[in-house]
C-alpha cells in the first residue's frame, strides 16, 4: 500500500536509555524490535515494542509525542547520535522505518543538555524555551488594540523570510545537536521572525536583550558557530538568523550603554 510497498519485515536491536525520574540514575537497556514493517513510523515501531513489553509485564519505554505529523515539536529522540535520527528535515515522528535496515542496532537517547533535565526515559523538560519566550518573544498587542490588517503593508520578501524563521517548532533538536548545548538557533528564529515585521519594530531591542539574557540564565551554552543546529533542525531553520540576531543584539547592547 504505497510506501516501499514492501512486505519484507525487519528486526532491529535497540539500546534505550531508561531512567525512572529526574533524580534517578539512568542506564541503557537492550530490546529487540521484531517483525517491523518498513512503512511504520519510528514511533509506531516503539508502540509495537511497548505493546510487547506490556504483555511481558515490563514497563513500556516513555517517550514524548503528540501530533505525530511533525508540527507540535513534542517528539524528539537522539537516534545513533543524531537528534531526530538520520533523515534530514524530519522529526522523529515523521521518520519511517524504511530509513533503516534489517539487523540495524540503534541507540536511543533523550536530548542531552543541562537546561533540559531528563524526567523519564526519553522525555525531557523543555520549560526553559517557554521562559525565553515569556522574556520577550512576543509583540505587545493586547486584544482589541489592532489596526485594520491591511493598513500596514509588509513586503512579501520580508513576510516570507519571517515565515521561514517562524516555522520553528520548538522541539529543541538544535540544543541537543550543539556541542555547547546552545539555544541560539531557537532564540534567533523567534527574534528574527518578529524583528523582520513592521509590527515588531517598537520592541526590537528589548526583545533580543530579554530573550538572550533569559537564555543565558537558563544555563544554555554559548554559540561557537559549529552549525550542528542547522543540520539537525527538522524545519531547516537557517543559521543566517543567528547572524541577524547577533547584529540586533549588538546594536541593542550599544544603545543600552549609551542611553
Amino acid at each position: 500500500m504505497g510506501g516501499t510497498g514492501s512486505d519484507q519485515t525487519m528486526n532491529l536491536t535497540l539500546n534505550v536509555w531508561r531512567q525512572k525520574n529526574r533524580r534517578a540514575e539512568g542506564e541503557f537497556v537492550t530490546y529487540e524490535a521484531k517483525d517491523i514493517n518498513p512503512d511504520m513510523s519510528f514511533l509506531e515501531m516503539l508502540d509495537v515494542v511497548n505493546e510487547h513489553l506490556i504483555s511481558r509485564g515490563e514497563e513500556p519505554i516513555a517517550f514524548d509525542h503528540d501530533c505525530r505529523e511533525g508540527i507540535c515539536g513534542q517528539c524528539g529522540i537522539v537516534i545513533n547520535g543524531s537528534p531526530h535520527g538520520p533523515r534530514g528535515a524530519t522529526t522523529t515522528c515523521q521518520l519511517h522505518m524504511r530509513s533503516f535496515h534489517n539487523g540495524d542496532v540503534l541507540t536511543l537517547e533523550p536530548w542531552r543538555a543541562n537546561a533540559f533535565p531528563v524526567i523519564k526515559d526519553l522525555m525531557v523538560d523543555r520549560g526553559a524555551f517557554d521562559r525565553i519566550v515569556a522574556a520577550g518573544g512576543f509583540i505587545t498587542a493586547p486584544t482589541g488594540n489592532a489596526p485594520e490588517a491591511n493598513s500596514v503593508p509588509v513586503p512579501k520578501e520580508n513576510a516570507d523570510l519571517a515565515m521561514d524563521a517562524a516555522a520553528c517548532i520548538g522541539c529543541g533538536a538544535c540544543v541537543a545537536a550543539c556541542p555547547n548545548a546552545s539555544a541560539m538557533l531557537f532564540v534567533a528564529a523567534k527574534a528574527s521572525h518578529l524583528n523582520l515585521l513592521p509590527q515588531g519594530q517598537p520592541e526590537r531591542s528589548r526583545r533580543v536583550l530579554g530573550m538572550v539574557e533569559r537564555m543565558d540564565g537558563e544555563g544554555f551554552g554559548g554559540c561557537t558557530n559549529h552549525g550542528e543546529c542547522e543540520a539537525a533542525c527538522p524545519k531547516e531553520i537557517s543559521i543566517k538568523f543567528i547572524a541577524r540576531m547577533n547584529r540586533d543584539h549588538h546594536k541593542a547592547s550599544l544603545l543600552r550603554i549609551f542611553s
Partner: peptide, 12 residues
C-alpha cells in the same frame, strides 16, 4: 487584525 498585529506572518 488582531493576528496581524501579533506578527502572524500570513501569506502576502
Amino acid at each position: 487584525d488582531q493576528c496581524v498585529s501579533q506578527g502572524v506572518p500570513f501569506a502576502r
